[in-house]
Amino acid sequence: MTTTEAPFAELLDRVDARLTDAPLTATARALADLQLAEAEDVLEAWLESKGRTPTGDTVEGFRLLALHRQGAKGDPSFNACRETCREIVYLRNVVTEYDGDMPEARHSLRLQSMVVKHLALFVGGKMVEAGLGDFCCSSRPIRHSDAAAAGPTIQGD
């Protein structure tokens, strides 16, 4: 298994590099915003792979949450990363509350890196699986080709 085979390989390598104890290359606040933007990149890639144009809107002030809502439309299983996205926003907000390179900010930044990594792995996995069918637990049935056109009986949230 090599990381270069997976979707978002470069992003994952960057996140891994940040998870070392090396000195911060920018302010904690700038890095928190950068990681938020990287999470947006992941969801943009998901939407584009589905032939959709990523929204520029925001939800509760954050584009990431709007992108997630857009990405989950018609695909209830995508909601498995809803809280992951909210945690990325929450941790970004925690980091911005600290002034400068404090241990608390570093800790939250590190956790934010790990949550972004999770998002990239989850969405990347779904993109790989998309070629085979959607096997996630709350997904629409893979053998009902008309289900997508008719819309799921139950809309997940």
Binding site: T84, L111, L121, F122, G125, C137
Partner: peptide
């Protein structure tokens, strides 16, 4: 922060690396 995150359970056989 990952208390409700996906563990990849549904991928275990089809994509165990993920």
């Amino acid at each position: 922060p990952l208390k409700t995150a996906c563990c990849g359970g549904a991928h275990s056989l089809s994509d165990s690396d993920t």
